[in-house]
Simulated assay, not measured.
Amino acid sequence: MFAAYVNSFSSESPVDGLVLGERPDPVAPDGWTIVTVKAAALNHHDLWSLRGVGLREESLPMILGCDAAGHDEDGNEVIVHAVISDPAWTGDETMDPKRSLLSEVYDGTLADKIAIPARNVVPKPRGLSFEEAACLPTAWLTAYRMLFTQADLNPGDTVLIQGAGGGVATAAISLAREAGMRVYATSRDESKRAKALEIGAHDVFEPGARLPRRVDAVMETVGAATWSHSIKSLRPGGTVVMCGATSGFTPERGELNRIFALQLRVHGSTMGTKGELAALADFMDVSGLRPLIDRVLPMEQADQGLRAMDEGRVFGKIVVTR
């Protein structure tokens, strides 16, 4: 079968380690199923894997990809949930210390077919295309969990979303606006600020700018570069939810005095549960909200999409199709 896989690591030029070619068809052990992929979405996780972060050299070659939608062995239209928990684990899969994501221990979704635990498939609503559904399992699921589970936000609340342009940030803008929140967003790029307004932000700002009001929560995906601004933007008792740190892990100012004096909450978040993915898919279907797709490419051009992502030339999700 055709697949996009990592065969070597490079921290400076990660896509150089990508191979587009043939791999053996997957074999499903007991309790697993084979999904025929119709569409898959690219994520920064793929670039980290190409750099060798979270992936061991002895695991190579490894098929990349966390997100996919396609057909199961009975012909049902399904979405793949990428969090693989221990078979004995019950409850929130993201809390399982033995969990992994597709493309870390088990081959990922950038292929004609993928083997996946049978419990990891979610019915695809007919109202969503395969391309739209493929955007949900990582970026959109992460944003959904950050907003509604970790921050526990409600209609009328105010949220700041740092780093508009990335997959999680654009998903959070759209979800928060659809759920009736007041949405602020930041970006260094003027064109991305303009696009953030188009997809639902009420107002946009340059990073570090003073906001019209303190916010109930901040969705933090940037890390060190925006951390101080995130903390300073919160109302007393507010929450910052962090799912990543693309600008680094060590901020110049930790703002610890503000955190304890204003009784702020700092909440980590990663991915989401199968139940949250199903709820997200239903939310999208009922509301009519659709993922923002930057571009759709054939899987044979996955390298072009990864290079665009690595260079920051993306607003929304890049989807590859079969």
Rank of each mutant, 00 (worst) to 15 (best):
T94F: 03
D86I: 06
N76C: 13
I79S: 03
M95F: 05
N76F: 10
S100K: 06
V78K: 08
P97G: 15
I84A: 03
W89P: 07
K98W: 04
T90S: 15
V105K: 13
T94Y: 03
L110N: 04
I84M: 12
G91A: 13
E93S: 14
V83M: 05
S85R: 05
A111Y: 01
S85Q: 12
T90Y: 12
A111K: 01
S85P: 11
V80K: 00
K98E: 10
P97D: 09
P87Y: 06
Y106D: 11
E93I: 14
D92C: 08
A88I: 03
G108D: 09
A82W: 00
I79C: 01
V80C: 11
V80M: 09
E93Q: 12
S100P: 00
L101G: 04
S103E: 07
W89C: 14
G108Q: 10
S103K: 00
T90I: 15
T109K: 08
V105Q: 08
R99Y: 07
A82H: 10
G91W: 07
G108M: 04
L102D: 00
D107P: 11
S100T: 10
A88C: 13
L101F: 12
S103H: 10
L102N: 06
E93K: 08
T90L: 15
Y106M: 08
A111P: 13
M95S: 13
S100N: 11
P87A: 04
E77D: 14
G108R: 00
D92G: 08
N76K: 14
L101H: 01
D86M: 08
G91R: 03
S100V: 01
K98I: 06
T109H: 05
K98G: 05
M95R: 15
P87S: 06
E77H: 11
E93F: 08
D92Y: 04
A88S: 15
S100D: 01
T90K: 12
D86C: 10
T94L: 01
W89A: 08
S103T: 05
T90Q: 15
W89M: 13
W89S: 06
Y106E: 08
T109V: 09
